[in-house]
Design a protein around this nucleic acid. Structure first.
Length: 458
RNA sequence: GGCGUCGUACCCAAGUGGUCCAAGGGAGCAGUUUGCAAAACUGUCAUUCAUCGGUUCGAAUCCGAUCGACGCCUCCA
């Protein structure tokens, strides 16, 4: 099967060829654990989740590594503000991140290496860069990468540095650098770093941000691996610098395909911690939105398009997710599983392997579901078709995970439902509708069918 | 200033030269079912793709201009 992915490096879709047959090595940039991640961050993690699930569905053995950035300016600042040890802060937000991943049904990576566990490896790579004359030690003991020492700096971000306007941020940066755009591989200790520092040949300090990914990706996936992902804002400087230092240090090919997801916007503006317009996963779940609805919103537009987040979208998503669950349950009542697929399944897969066209794949799925419903209504659905339908939905769910787990109905809810059934028996419609409203407010939807009332969580 | 993305129905969103006089979801409308309820199901819903020009036998899709939205240019998923 021909799989095609858009490669940021070449700015076009390319046919995916794994380095090792049947295997894919995947590195995805993980969170900086100084704060609770927000739904915008999770757009990227869901995109990566879909990518991995698609690769697995078509038969690849995927080795997935996601880093945890547990030392940098922000984590240190946070620890300082709260007057706590750095690892108190980072372990708290790391476990919260893991909870959110699980809540959103995101498959965990095979490895979640932390930056602070790889300081020695980073020091080794920096030493190589200094030996190779790609890096130099500044007066204060910081180490910088010299972008003039390589000739293709800027190739990922498509930047022609000679024509760039120098921004204030760059102008205000340290004057000890040879070139103002040289970036830090090692940051010498400063007073505000407190007890956060490690020994190095250049004095005490801590690694620069980009080092950890160069070191950990290659340590666990090999110097040359298949796919590296992140949000578009990682293209520059993070991934550009990663390429520069990795290629210079290792002298080999580094990453074949770079994939980046677009931003999730809040009211047409980027959702980010610094703008303060964020929503976290627990907040959204507390508002009564399901993990499936959240996944749907993030999956129903293409990963390379900007996406505006709104409650309106979540409402639409809830209904779409319900539609899928409903027909699935409807089919379950008809016949058991089989093992052949409808023709639409091939189209579905084709859409997904064409640069993860999830909106198109969803369209194909919905079209097919409507056809199934039509046949059920006309009593023309054969057992064969029904079992194919179930299998298709199950396979689709291996990618999307829109099917809800059968939830246990709490006693309180069951009692209300029973009370409502009594009212219905007495043809007390007023009370019965009132109870249905009450249940809805508690997050449970009750439906009456010929076989009695069904109840499920919204 | 440089680089780049985008503008498709009331909302969301695929499609990027002919099979598109444009998928799919939501809303609306009509019908089936039902408790004149909710849910479910079916049907319906863009001669048109920001605007204006151009290329072509043929354009939502290519080119140019204009208008509008957004992102990156060392905090950022």
């Amino acid at each position: 099967m021909e799989i095609r992915f858009y490669n940021t490096l070449t700015r076009k879709k390319e046919i995916f060829k794994p380095i090792n047959k049947g295997k894919v090595s995947l590195y995805t940039c993980g969170p900086t654990v100084y704060n609770r991640a927000h739904i915008g961050n999770f757009r990227t993690f869901i995109f990566e989740d879909v990518l991995k699930r698609v690769l697995q569905l078509v038969g690849y053995n995927v080795k997935h590594v996601m880093n945890i950035t547990d030392v940098d300016d922000k984590t240190i600042k946070k620890a300082h503000e709260e007057n706590k040890k750095l690892n108190k802060i980072t372990s708290k937000y790391t476990s919260e991140f893991m909870e959110d991943l699980q809540a959103l049904k995101i498959l965990p990576a095979d490895l979640f290496p932390a930056a602070t566990d790889h300081i020695q490896n980073m020091i080794e790579m920096i030493s190589i860069l200094i030996e190779n004359k790609n890096a130099y030690v500044a007066d204060d003991g910081s180490v910088f990468f010299s972008i003039d020492s390589i000739n293709d700096y800027g190739k990922l971000a498509n930047l022609d540095l000679k024509r760039q306007k120098q921004t204030d941020r760059v102008a205000a940066d340290e004057y000890t650098k040879d070139n103002p755009r040289d970036f830090a591989l090692w940051k010498a200790w400063k007073v505000e770093d407190g007890d956060v520092f490690w020994d190095s040949p250049w004095g005490i300090g801590r690694p620069g941000w980009h080092m950890e990914c160069s070191v950990m990706s290659t340590k666990y996936l090999g110097n040359h691996f298949d796919i590296h992902c992140g949000g578009v804002d990682n293209i520059f400087p993070h991934h550009e610098n990663e390429i520069a230092q990795s290629c210079a240090a290792l002298g080999t090919e580094f990453v074949n395909i770079w994939m980046h997801s677009e931003h999730l916007n809040m009211a047409d503006e980027k959702m980010s911690k610094s703008l303060g317009n964020i929503k976290t996963i627990p907040e959204l779940l507390d508002d009564g939105h399901s993990a499936e609805s959240l996944r749907y919103v993030l999956i129903s537009s293409h990963y390379r398009s900007k996406l505006s987040f709104s409650s309106n979208k979540l409402d639409d998503a809830r209904k779409a997710v319900h539609r899928i669950n409903d027909i699935y349950n409807r089919l379950q009542g008809i016949i058991s599983d089989g093992n052949s697929f409808p023709n639409e399944y091939d189209q579905f897969i084709e859409a997904l392997v064409d640069d993860l066209n999830t909106p198109k794949a969803l369209g194909i799925l919905f079209n097919y579901l409507k056809e199934l419903n039509r046949k059920i209504d006309n009593d023309k659905l054969t057992d064969e078709e029904s079992s194919r339908g179930i299998l298709f939905i199950k396979k689709a769910d291996e990618i999307f995970s829109f099917l809800k787990d059968k939830t246990v109905i709490p006693d309180e809810i069951a009692k209300l439902v029973a009370k409502r059934n009594e009212a219905r028996k007495d043809k007390n419609w007023e009370l019965s509708d009132l109870l249905r409203e009450e249940l809805k407010e508690k997050g449970w939807i009750v439906e009456d069918t010929l076989d009695g009332s069904k109840c499920y969580s919204a």
